[in-house]
Amino acid sequence: MKKILLSAAIAVIGLTQVSAQEFSFGPKAGVNFATLTGDIEDAEFKVGLHIGGAAEYMFDEKMGLQAELLYSMQGAKNEYTETSTIGGVTERDFEKSTLKLNYINLPVMFKYYIVDGFNVEVGPQVSFLVSAKGEYEYEYSISGGGTDFSESGSEEIDIDDELKGIDFGLNFGLGYKLDNGLNFGARYNLGLMNINDEDEFRDEYKINNGVIQISAGFMF
């Protein structure tokens, strides 16, 4: 009887160890370099953050799946500056437009470990729009020749109704995980869905998300 109990205990310990080796989870955070592509002109990268958690399940030593839940600050920006001097009078015009799109991202990544913690990953992502705002800033000034004038202003509006509440994309990335669970990754999210939801321009203007993510995390 004691041998049976001892064998059962050893089996349970063995299964626990296998499960621990197969499954891991932990926090993840990093920086976004986000923009918008498609029928949108002069869109520049907007810097934001992403934060959340990840869970990894390994099928064997090489292959696994990683599911994540991330709060992601995305969007795009555009800046315009023009300075001219004529007859000793300098005129400066500055304008900045920023689209602030915040999403909850749910990527599921197939991972393949090449060697010594280095891995490549690819997988789909579904995203849910949390908030969308458009911000406009301007500064205008004239100086010199007895003239000194300047003005500035800003405005922020909600644009949730102009964008679709859900987005689909495809991720490609590289990663490295240390034996202690600390990991790093770089990923590109290619938006596959037109997020423009304005009735008059939905079919005419296509707008897609495009995000580069640099991340760090820890797996327990």
Rank of each mutant, 00 (worst) to 15 (best):
S154M: 03
Q17F: 15
L65G: 06
D161G: 09
E79Q: 08
F220N: 01
Q21V: 11
Y176H: 01
V122H: 08
N105Q: 06
Y71I: 10
M109I: 09
G117T: 00
V18C: 03
G134M: 12
Q17K: 08
A132E: 10
S72T: 13
V47E: 02
D93G: 11
N183T: 11
E121M: 07
M193K: 08
T147Q: 08
Q125L: 06
M73S: 11
E41I: 12
L129G: 05
I4M: 11
L49Q: 00
A8R: 00
G14N: 05
F184T: 00
F128Y: 13
S97H: 11
G48P: 00
Y103P: 01
G145M: 06
A54T: 10
K77W: 02
L178Y: 05
N32Q: 03
I212Y: 04
G144K: 02
K3G: 15
A54C: 07
T85K: 02
F23V: 00
K111C: 14
G75S: 12
A9F: 10
G217T: 11
Y176W: 04
Y205E: 09
D199F: 10
R92V: 14
T37K: 06
I159L: 01
N78V: 12
G64H: 09
E155Q: 11
M73N: 14
A132L: 04
G153E: 06
A29H: 10
D167T: 14
T147Y: 15
Y140S: 06
T98S: 10
A20V: 11
N119P: 01
S24K: 03
E137M: 10
L6K: 03
G185D: 14
G117M: 01
A34I: 08
G165K: 05
R187N: 03
E61A: 10
L49S: 03
I40C: 07
K100H: 11
E61C: 05
T37W: 05
N183V: 03
S7A: 14
S215K: 10
F25Q: 01
F45L: 05
A11T: 05
L101M: 07
E135N: 09
K177Q: 00
A186V: 08
V211Y: 11
D39R: 01
K46H: 07
D93N: 14
A29P: 08
T16C: 12
G169E: 07
D167W: 12
G88D: 11
S72I: 03
S154G: 10
E156K: 07
E91R: 05
